[in-house]
C-alpha cells in the first residue's frame, strides 16, 4: 500500500449565490483593492489516505468528495494528490 496526501477543494457552483464571497469582494473593493474582480468562497479539506496506487487513491477521493464532502446540488469539488 502507498500513502498519499490530498487536498480537496469544495465550492459553490457558479449558478448558486455565494453571499460570503460577494461580501468579501465588496469589502476588498471598498478597501481599495480595485484589481480584485471577483471572490468565491469555499472549503478546503486535507486528507491522508492509503491505496494500492494513484488511480485507486483518485477513485476513493472521487467517491468521498462526491458523496460526503460536497453536495452536488450546490457545490463542485476538485482535488490534488501526492504520494508521501
Amino acid at each position: 500500500m502507498k500513502y498519499y496526501r490530498a487536498k480537496v477543494t469544495v465550492r459553490k457552483t457558479e449558478t448558486v449565490a455565494d453571499p460570503e464571497g460577494k461580501t468579501i469582494s465588496e469589502a476588498l473593493s471598498r478597501l481599495g483593492y480595485q484589481n480584485i474582480k471577483s471572490v468565491r468562497s469555499g472549503k478546503v479539506f486535507f486528507l491522508e489516505l492509503e491505496a494500492e496506487d494513484k488511480a485507486a487513491a483518485e477513485t476513493l477521493l472521487e467517491t468521498v468528495s462526491r458523496d460526503i464532502l460536497s453536495n452536488p446540488i450546490i457545490e463542485k469539488f476538485a482535488f490534488e494528490i501526492e504520494e508521501i
Binding site: 459553490k12 448558486v16 449565490a17 453571499p19 460570503e20 461580501t23 453536495n71 446540488i73 450546490i74
Partner: peptide, 16 residues
C-alpha cells in the same frame, strides 16, 4: 434535503 427525501438544498441567507 441532504438525505434526498426532498429536492434542492439550503444555502446561507442572502443577507448573511
Amino acid at each position: 434535503l441532504e438525505c434526498g427525501l426532498l429536492p434542492g438544498a439550503m444555502i446561507p441567507n442572502d443577507h448573511l
